[in-house]
Design a protein around this nucleic acid. Structure first.
Lengths: 172, 172
DNA sequence: GCCCATTACTTGGCCAGCCAACATAATGGT
DNA sequence: ACCATTATGTTGGCTGGCCAAGTAATGGGC
């Protein structure tokens, strides 16, 4: 991975005082007049989607989010970090760190921008380039799995609606 | 936020599924260059949505994600942590830490489960209860902003499609 | 009674992402 | 030339979220 893992230890605590309240309420998933039908669904689906992407990307040594940055580089070639930030709509600090990790992983490299000493130029390394096919395959798999069972019309409709939502949320 | 920082005053702070349908799958239509149309849109919209939620929740001293846990407690009353984990479909460790922070913020309290010394019962505190109206208002606002401009039919359709996606991603 | 799988939770570690504050470098105006 | 403004990145700090690994308590089988 572009990182790694490890173990654990113990801990205390525990507070007395039961007071056992039996609040057996109605079924958990009643769809109450809970304000956010679409919001909830969107959040759940997106998290699930991201987690699935994570599992697939894992074998390639990437974390979800990193593949998007790589894809931008593959498609648009070497570019300024500020360009990545703008296009991916991420916080500058997020990109800075992601870039640091990807560089350390040997997938990209940073170099000074000739002509603007503030800027950093970012480009893929051969190792990074080598991941392209696999990552794109992962995305095809993911997309297929995501919209499985939807008709062509459904997919188009979904894209249309998501675009509307994106517009709504952008302007605010 | 709920974790630390501060705000203005004190104590509690200031910091702050529907339908389904048939559909036969057609040939893997040749998609545009970019493999994940829906996937990309979904990811972008969801991130934007979450960020927007974050801005709204911020004034209440909450981080996005925490409000969902509170809402479950408000709706279903005191319950085991394992129940929250199951219903929210989160990793146990995620809930453990979220609960620790919310407890430290004074919004919920943990106590031993009488009869099962492994379990932890979680309930809202008065301070937590006091946030309910505001949080629910935030969610109504968020939902409204999210689906603004969509017809009733569009909203229903969107919910339907998202449910399908959820099902697709769950089984895998 | 005794042993073991299961359940419930916790900690360590790592990542994306955000905000705030900061250091530099380029630019524009006067 | 000089200085304020803008552009570009970076670091610190905090969150949600995941995985791996570990501690306890429960419950079942023998």
């Amino acid at each position: 991975m572009v990182g790694n893992h490890s173990p654990a230890k113990e801990a205390p605590h525990a507070r007395p005082h039961p007071a056992e309240r039996h609040s057996r309420l109605p079924a958990p998933s009643a769809r109450p007049a809970c304000g956010g039908q679409v919001s909830h669904a969107l959040a759940r689906v997106a998290r699930s989607h991201r987690t699935t992407a994570g599992h697939l990307l894992r074998r390639l040594g990437l974390y979800p989010g990193q593949e998007l940055l790589m894809m931008r580089l593959w498609e648009a070639g070497p570019q300024r970090q500020s360009e990545l930030i703008k296009l991916m709509e991420l916080d500058p600090s997020t990109v800075t760190r992601m870039v640091q990790r990807l560089e350390q992983a040997g997938l990209i490299s940073r170099c000074a921008h000739p002509g603007d000493r503030r800027a950093v130029l970012i480009e893929t390394t051969p190792a990074g380039e080598a991941l392209r096919e696999e990552v794109e395959q992962v995305w095809r798999d993911l997309e297929e799995r995501t919209v499985a069972g939807l008709t062509e019309a459904d997919r188009a409709e979904l894209s249309r609606l998501l675009s509307l939502l994106e517009r709504n949320l952008a302007t605010g």
